[in-house]
Design a protein around this nucleic acid. Sequence first.
DNA 1: CAGCGCCCCTGCCCGC
DNA 2: TGCGGGCAGGGGCGCT
Length: 271
Amino acid sequence: MPELPEVVVTLRGVSPHILGKQVASVSVREPRLRWPVTEGLSSLLVGQTLLEGRQRGKYMLFRFASGHLMIHLGMSGNLRIVTVGTPVGKHDHVDINFVDGTVLRYSDPRRFGTIQWLEGLPEEHPLLHHLGPEPFDDGFCGDYLYRLSRGRKVPVKQFIMDSKVVVGVGNIYANESLFHAGIRPTLGVGKVSRVRYVELVEQVKRVLASAIEQGGTTLRDFVGGDGKPGYFKQQLYVYGRAGEPCLKCGALLKEIRQGQRSTVYCPDCQR
DNA sequence: CAGCGCCCCTGCCCGC
DNA sequence: TGCGGGCAGGGGCGCT
């Protein structure tokens, strides 16, 4: 589920409940995630105080004095705040228990996520090392995409979903951004003009920002319950609407597959 | 190096 | 109602 907006909103949602608090214990009920949960996580964390929570792409980074706890939600993960003694569900794989009884609970049915302890600089970690700019960075601009794309042939949709190009643009928002920019997802990147990249970047930023904004209001429930925090179904123009009429021009939206993922576009608005 | 296809896993939805 | 197949929003890896 989580695309960048969900990650950002999750981080904002859980942070106030755990920042500045000391870890009392850690339980890892299921270490077999995408990569196994760091061995001995408990002894690495216990006694340390959470100093900061931030995000790099879809990775969340929680800073402690001696390192960072890195959490990725994969496709089906979520984080929420519960209290000690809250019954454990089938997919509640990891708990970080704080001394005041607050629990940061990680849940992930498909186990595509990851929880790793990092020593040293997070940006030097192999999983973060090659990441491109954040979508809201000034460095992510039309000119950047234009220069990076010259001489290449990848379809523009795969290009903007490549984390070496820019982080945080997942399938849904790639579809949506391309729609709003009027660019056909299959178009080879080398053929896209500079002005069109300027437009695309603008749309990526706008679409992500509005999803985050929407999430901030829809999704305040990180606390308590067995809550799946329920992902925000904001207004999507193309994703999940194959065969339905385009909301701008009425033409029927088309669906194709690119890199094992579904692409939906308007054959009239996107060229 | 660029560009593909594969695969980790469970849940859910659809059609029979 | 039960069951099998296909599909899901991530993303690294290994092969050509």
